[in-house]
Design a protein around this nucleic acid. Structure first.
Length: 98
DNA sequence: TATTTGACCAAGA
DNA sequence: ATCTTGGCCAAAT
């Protein structure tokens, strides 16, 4: 099982209406490679399969998404997550820990 | 094999 | 508030 595959698997585990962070994912993988997590998602060979839009930075700030942050915000809001200035509101409430 | 890169994080200037 | 630096890890080149 590759590191990336684990990342993708965890991403798919994030329930609708919740978000997670690179750090949390890395921690769930017994690694401190939160950076590698972002790197993995950046490649994202499983483009539509993996809901990578539910992953934000630790400060709840949205970072580069495939279709642009605007589309992301819309998508997240449709799941019940509020976004303001590319940041997640009530971040701690919607944060999903593994 | 070695170096660079990145959707990161924290701390300092 | 913005920019830089150092540290972290895996994948890509």
């Amino acid at each position: 099982m590759n590191f990336n595959d684990k990342v993708y698997r965890l991403c798919k585990l994030i329930p609708k209406g919740k978000v997670s962070t690179y750090k949390e994912i890395a921690k769930a993988l017994d690694s401190r490679g939160y950076r590698a997590v972002g790197n993995a998602l950046n490649k994202n060979p499983y483009a539509p399969v993996v809901p990578c839009h539910r992953v934000v930075s630790y400060s709840s700030h949205l970072h580069g998404f495939l279709h642009g942050l605007a589309a992301k915000r819309k998508l997240l809001e449709s799941e019940g997550i509020k976004i303001k200035n590319n940041k997640v509101i009530d971040f701690e409430k919607v944060l999903f820990r593994f």
